[in-house]
Each structure stands twice: as C-alpha cells, then as structure tokens.
Design a protein around this nucleic acid. Structure first.
Lengths: 230, 230, 230, 230
DNA sequence: GATGAATGAGGCTTCATTCAT
DNA sequence: CATGAATGAAGCCTCATTCAT
C-alpha cells in the first residue's frame, strides 16, 4: 500500500510487532506524508508542464526530496502517474458516485450531481482536470487501461443512476440508451471542464455553464424515456 | 503543401517558361504523394503505438523512406503531429461543418449531422479518432494550441447551427446556452467515439449509439429553448 | 566549480550541521577530481584530434566515465570547450601576468617574461597551445567571445607593463603604441609557439627562439620610445 | 584545374578540338565564372557564419546554383575550403612577396611592405583575414597542411627579405634570428589584423597601427643585427 | 531510509554526399 | 551540365533508473 513492491504481504503488523511502538507510528505517519508530498508535487508538475515534459529530478526537487527517495516510494514514473490517476479517479468517483446515489432516481437529483461537478470539483481542482482529461491520455497501455477503468466506473455509476430514473419514469427507448447517455454526460463534463477551466480561464462562468449543461441533460434524458411525463 | 521551409517562393521570374514542363509536374505530384505517404505512416503509427512510443526511424521504415527524407518534408516530429492534426481537423470540420450547415436550423438536420459522425466518420477513421482525441492531447504548447483551434472551430460551427435552431424555435434560456450545448455535443461525440471505437470494439453498435445520442441531443436542445414546442 | 546548474545554492539553512561530515568532504573532493579528469580528457583529445573531430563518447571513454556523466558535469560540448579555454587562459594569464608585473618596468624584466613563455609554458603545455591558438578559433560566438576576453586581458596586462617601461624611459611615439606593441608581442608568442611546437617539433630550439624573440621585442620597444636611451 | 577530379590529364585541348569553337570558349568562361561565384559565396559565408556553421545548401543558395552544381565544381566541402585558402594565400603571398622583394634589403622597404598589409590588404579583405586566420584553423589534417604551407611560404619570403637586410647591414646575432623574426612579424600581422579588423571594428585606426607596428619591426630587426649601423 | 552521482540506451536531428532525371 | 530529392551515418543530448555510501 505504501512502498515500492508489494512483495511482503504485510507481515509486519500482525507478526513481529503486535504493539507498534510510538516511534514506529510516527514513522508510519511521516512515510504516508512524504508519499503524499511527492504525489502532489508530481500532480502539480504534470498538470502544469505536462507528463513528458516533467523529469523525475524536477519532481524530487519540488517535493524537496532526492530522486532516490521518489524511487523508494514509487516503482517508476509511470507508477507515479497511475497512482495519481487512481487517486484522482477515486475522488471523482467518490464525489459523483455519492451525488448520483443521492439523486435517488430523480432528475432533480441528477441536476444536483451535475452542479456538484461544475461548482465543487472543477474550480477547486483544476490540476486534476488536467491530469485526468489530458495528461493521462495516450501514455501507454498500462495507464490507458487504468484510465479506462476509471471512466468505466464513472459511467457505470451514472448508468445505475439513470436506470433508477428509468425505474421511476418508465423505460428508455433503447436498451443501450442508459449506457450511451451515461457516456454522453461524462463526455459533456469532460469537454466543458476542459473548455472553461483549461483552455479558457472562466471559472466565473462555471455556474452558468453548469446550469445550462444540467438543463441539457435533463432534456436529453426525458427525451429518451419512452413514455414521457406529461 | 510544399516541403520543409518555404524559403524559395518559387523563383519563377528568371525562367522563360511559364508552363511547367511535364517532368516538373510529375515531380510535383510525386512529392505530394510522398508527403502523404509519410503522413499516413505517421498517422497509423501514432494511433497504433502512441506518439511518444513511435520513433522517427520507425515512421521512415513504415513509409519506406529514409529518416532524412522524413526531415526533408517535415521540420521535426512535432511538425508531423501538427500537420496530421490539422489535416484531420480539417476533414472533420469539413464533414461536420457541412452537415451542420445542411441542418438548416432544424432538429432533424442536427440529428442527421450526428449520424454522419457516428455512421460515417467513426467506423471509417478509427485512427483519426485516436489521433485527435488521444495522441494530440498533452503534447506541448504548440500542439495544444492547434488542438484548441480545431475544437474551437468545430464548436463554433455547431454553435452557429444551434443559433439557427433558436432562430426558428425561439430563444434559449441562457445567453451561454448555445455555446455550452455546442461544447457538450462535441464532448458527447468525443467520448462516445472513444468508448465504442477505441476502448471497446463495437463498431456494430455505433448505429444504435448514434440514434440514442441524437435523441439525447434533441431532447437537450429542446429543453433549453424558452418556449418549448408543445 | 560545481556541477551542471547551480540550481541549488547550497540549502544549508535546514541542516543543523555547519561542519560538513567527512564523507561529504570526500565526495566534494572526488567530484572535483572527476571534473578535472573529464576536462583533461577533453583537452587532450581536442588538442590531438580537433574539437569537431572529437565526439562526446570518445571523451567519456578517455575519461573512463559514461556519456551521461560528462553531461552531469558539463552542460554541453561547447561548455566543455569554454571551461577548458577559461582554465587555460587563466593559467596563461597567471604566468604571464605575474612575469609582467615582476618586470618592474625594465626591458630586462620583459625579456624574462618572454623567456618564461618560451621555456616554461610552451614545452610543458603543448596541448594548451593547440587549444588556445587553434581549436578555440572559429567555434561559434560564445567561444569566440571568451577567446577575445582572454586575449584582451593578456594584451592589457602586457600594455600595462609597457606603460611602466614608458614611465621609466620616456613616452612612446604614438598614443596607440603601447596597445599595438602589446598585441604584436602576443602575436609573436602565438605564431612562434605554433610554429615550433605544433607545426614543427623543435622543442630544443625554443630556448634560442625565445632569445631571438626577446631581442626583437627589446629592440622594437626601444625604437618606439621617443627619446631613446643612449 | 577546374572541375571535380583531375582524372583526365587534360586530353581535351590538344586532342579532339584543336581550334576551340566560339561557344566552347564561352562555356569555358562561364564555367570559370561560376566556379568563382561559388568560391566567393563560400568565402563570404565561411567568414560571416563560420565554416562548420555553413551548410552546403546555404552555399549553393548564396551562389544561386544547386547543391549538385557545387559538387560538380568542388570535390567536397573541405575542397572548397582548401581552394579558398589557397587562393587567399596566393593573393597574400603575391602582395607581401612582391613588397618584400621590392624592399631591396632596406628597412624602409620592409616598412613599406608592412604598410601594404595594414593599409591595403586588411581594410579591403576583412573576410580573407577571417578565413586565413580563423576559419581555416583546426579543420583537419589536410587543411592544416595547406595552412602550414601558406604560412611557411610567407615566412620564407620574409626570411629572404631579412637576409637581404642582413647582407647589407651585417649578420644577425643568431643563425635562427631571420627565421624567428620572420615568424614573429607574421604573428604580429596576424594578431593585429585580427584585433583591429575582427574583434574590434577599427579600420580607421589601421594606419596608425601599421605605423607603430612598422616602427616596432624596424627596431626589432636592428636590435638583432650584430653590428648596428650608426 | 535517504542521497545524488553515475549509467547508457535510445531519441531526435543534421548534413555532407550521391544520383536519377 | 544542372538539379534537388533522397540517403543514412554520425552526432549530441536526455532522462528514467540504479546503487554504493
């Protein structure tokens, strides 16, 4: 979970030291802290300068450690990107997944979820937008696989939410509809975030963008329901 | 359109022959041909193996020329990507732009444009999808600038089409709406193409995907109109 | 004095140890040593084979390090040449500058300085002769600028010495005289060293050459004094 | 004498065409002209940008011919430099050699020769200064050999002139003296020209520089004579 | 655990030279 | 003779990764 290779299936905690000394605990904490520091440094740089334009030495500098230390915590550069991607994906999924669950099968709920993305996530994590939607693209099979998994999960979560809507408001025109809509909505989020956060710097417009997007989504979903609500 | 640097702007003045000789014409043609060959080789490899994973030597091999020849036609690797991107962008814009214009301000027209993308462009140009939506992302400022320009134009074309719709069916709820919807639709196209062409290999599903997407779009647009049609 | 870029200006603030550990000192020493080893390898090869005929790999081989190591200590090939040139220039100026100062405004002193060049510097540093008078010529603006600076300083030192002579023995015929003579003498040194050390291998003749050169110089200087000593 | 390789020991003139047609003559003239054009283009560029910084294509451009044509007239790039160097050397030797001969063993004659260099050659041929004293240095064995030959001849000419002086005014202190003085004077010319023509742009000072240099030389020579003239 | 000097394979690019047209 | 597209060896340099201290 922390260091280089997962060689040792965690024998430490249970076997030798049942009662972790205080210093051991502190060490554990410091280690976690350092790992995060490095991860953040990498994240910042990847987002700002680009994955390939960022060297390991630069990351080490930014994290105020040595290159060797970076390699102690991460197997290699790709690993750094993967971990970063996973973490970002996890956060995003946490945020959106929760929002979708709370949607409770209503269109209002979906709308709220959309607003969470545009008004919470985007303005607070521009570098994560850059990472997940830009830097992680086209970086080799392993990263791409991870990226796919994240999107798959997000889309899947969204699909479930849409099914709930369907359960309440009637079936969709097509069996693929939920899946397609889920992917569509993710695509919207992606491009809108990219447009207004990365290519233009219009954080202030995000609220309105979110509202329009949400209205678009609601209309879209409604239109895919076989028997539309009167 | 020509080679490396446009240094010599055709020193036609001296030669008394305004009509290019036949051999000169053939050379011109061969040159254009070879340039395209290289461009295609690069396109294929970038899409299949990734931009960074593809060396110049590999490209030369694939195009059956020497490395030097590649550099005779393109300034450097980035130039190759940029030219490729521009060409792809041009084609896509040609296709979609035309479709949007033909939409003539009707929702049916928009739908047709969507189908053109999913049923014409996607299945026939999977490598262009990969190039424009994956490989060109995060490759340095110059490429990113070009990428932005392409997306901007596509979105702008689409926005115009949406304005036409608005002209016919009434104003949108918000002044940003057209722009946001345009970007949204591009995002949908992007992610759906990516999902079904790259991550999954479901060309057969594209037709249905397209239909669902289009239905979603139509619903979305309608919902953004102030006075909805009854 | 240190490595590649002086990025980190010694972040001493944090470490509570103002006294560098013994191992740190040893490292420092080893580093300096290696830098010199590389510099010497490059110097030897540049002199023997020529700057352009010497590849970085060859230099690394000669210094018994890897190419990467060379680039760890020097920014690029030009940097290697510049550092080498500076070092050589510094030594030469040290030698001649001191000799000129000790001349104390006498012609005998000047003569002694000349002999130092021909009998000390030349036979012991043939490769530095080659470097400063041959390899560093015509290698781009940066190197040329450095070269000019070195010559300027040497000439300036010599001019000062000549002014001292003038102070003792009377003014020169022309205001430019000191400067011209200084440059002339440097030119003599240069070509004589080149002739007898590089083009011919007549180290044994250097003593006599030096004597003749010095006699020539003395006569030249005297002839430029307005009121010659009887 | 003219083209690529001297393969054919000139069978043309005598064997097949005893009476050169008019067109053949014109061709001959044009060929010579073109050769000179290329040579001048190369000379200008070598002096301005440096030998290594100048590509063959650039030379061809400047001469308004194709690369192939350059290779028709010159075996390779080095050949271009060698021919240029030879030509320059020839001119210089012509100029100085004549001047030395006209010196007629007098110090006034030597002085006149010096002035010819500083007041005729330098201001009118800055690019030749650059070529012979900078660009041709350190460019491989063949060029260096040629360079040596040129300097040897110049020095030898000068030495002869000095011997004439000696014949008139008495023997030199040392048997090497004439040779050493000859080299010294060449060195003076070299460095002074370099200083005032290349590193500084003080053509206007050349006259004075020449005068001072000449006075220095005269004094130097006199001082090397065993029995000085009263 | 941390350090940072060392490694070296691999990448991109240049450019003198050739040769079919 | 002239052209200029094509060649490909060779060069410089980067940077992820390792390992002795």
């Amino acid at each position: 979970m922390t260091a280089k290779r997962d060689k040792k299936p965690r024998p430490a905690a249970k076997t030798t030291a049942p009662t972790p000394t205080r210093s051991a605990l502190r060490r554990q904490r410091e280690r976690e802290l350092r790992l995060q520091t490095i991860l953040e440094a990498a994240g910042t740089l990847f987002a700002r300068e680009g994955y390939h334009q960022t060297g390991m030495e630069r990351i080490a500098d930014e994290a105020e450690v040595s290159v060797g230390t970076v390699y102690f915590y991460f197997k290699n550069k790709e690993d750094l990107l993967v971990k970063l991607l996973d973490q970002t994906g996890y956060e995003l999924r946490n945020l959106l997944g929760t929002a979708f669950k709370n949607a409770d099968g209503t269109l209002e709920g979906l709308s709220r979820a959309g607003k969470v993305f545009f008004e919470d996530f985007c303005p607070n994590h521009p570098e994560k937008i850059a990472l997940i939607f830009r830097e992680s693209a086209g970086q080799g099979e392993l990263v791409e696989a991870r990226r796919k998994k994240i999107f798959d999960k997000l889309i899947s979560d969204l699909e479930v939410a849409l099914q709930s809507v369907s359960d309440k408001l009637g079936p969709f025109h097509s069996p693929l509809a939920a899946e397609v809509m889920a992917a569509s909505i993710m695509g919207m989020f992606e491009r809108l975030a990219y447009q207004y956060m990365i290519w233009q710097d219009r954080k202030d417009a995000l609220e309105e963008v979110g509202e329009d997007a949400v209205r678009f989504i609601v209309g879209g979903v409604q239109n895919c329901l076989k028997a539309e609500k009167s």
